[in-house]
Design a protein around this nucleic acid. Sequence first.
DNA 1: ATATTCAGGACAATAATTGTCCAAATGTAA
DNA 2: TTACATTTGGACAATTATTGTCCTGAATAT
Lengths: 111, 111
Amino acid sequence: MNTKQSFGEYLRKLREDQNLPIRKVASKLDIDPSTLGKIERGERSANKEMLPILAELFGIEEKALGLILFSDKVAYQIIEEENTNEILKVAEEKIKYLKNKNLKQGSLDLK
Amino acid sequence: MNTKQSFGEYLRKLREDQNLPIRKVASKLDIDPSTLGKIERGERSANKEMLPILAELFGIEEKALGLILFSDKVAYQIIEEENTNEILKVAEEKIKYLKNKNLKQGSLDLK
DNA sequence: ATATTCAGGACAATAATTGTCCAAATGTAA
DNA sequence: TTACATTTGGACAATTATTGTCCTGAATAT
């Protein structure tokens, strides 16, 4: 897993390795080729519905693809702050706490 | 630093410790009391402009307040995924890479 | 009982996101 | 070069999310 790559860069590499035109992949995703181009260039974000389609198309794990997508989103969200590491650490503790809390309560009040 | 608290819960505690009504704090922030109530209950998000005002009002570090706010946002964004820890780890590496890259290039292309 | 405070829904305004369409640019092969 | 396919990127519209206000009713305090 190359964590230095953005989702778009990764996607483009996958596509080019298979010599597929944007047009074809876009068609699988049922979106305009221009939109996919923007996703590959990072001007747009992909959404979760695209993940299983892309995973199957390129023969990779959907979870791995999602990992790249979500880490992109998180990174983008806080990269302009100075204390990014601290933010991530506190977020991790918070998530741990919340997941445990909701587990005990039974109700998944996470939306 | 209590990482188990959300930004809103933390804010409410600060306010109640000083026996201030929502109305007064909202006025300092120049927003409707109802909006502040929602922020305290987590139904709305605070924004960065509010941080220095709140920090001064309650005599705490703006950075500490921002830490709680941003970690909240990150946690909220990914808490429904299963592999949250992995996402955070990859995000951290990505940020490290991007910050270093932009440092070297000089241009802060982060927006 | 009256005042104040707070909760929460309905609503409007604004901003952000998502996608399409098209024209220009780029690449590719004959 | 010509012809064709692909990609880029701007303008635009539609949808969705966010933000805040206003108002009513409930709870709390005096």
